[in-house]
Amino acid sequence: MAKIKGDIVINVERCKGCEVCLASCPTSVIGMAKEVNSKGYHFAIKVNDTCTGCMNCALVCPDGVITVYRAKVTAE
């Protein structure tokens, strides 16, 4: 059975840690890192693998740091 699988890549160096993406994610994929980037921001990170590739996080990200992948995969 085919199912939609998504993934995101966050450019953590450009992330300013505003957290706007967190609320937009329907599957709570995103959390905040304890570490900071070179600008001193706690950046957004993936905290689970439930991403559906809906693009919500990327759309609302003011700094445009999120790339979204989506593919149909056959269930294992």
Partner: peptide, 12 residues
């Protein structure tokens, strides 16, 4: 998900 992180799967 390294298997889908391919250019052809970029949606945004």
């Amino acid at each position: 998900k390294l298997d889908i992180r391919k250019d052809e799967n970029i949606v945004y």
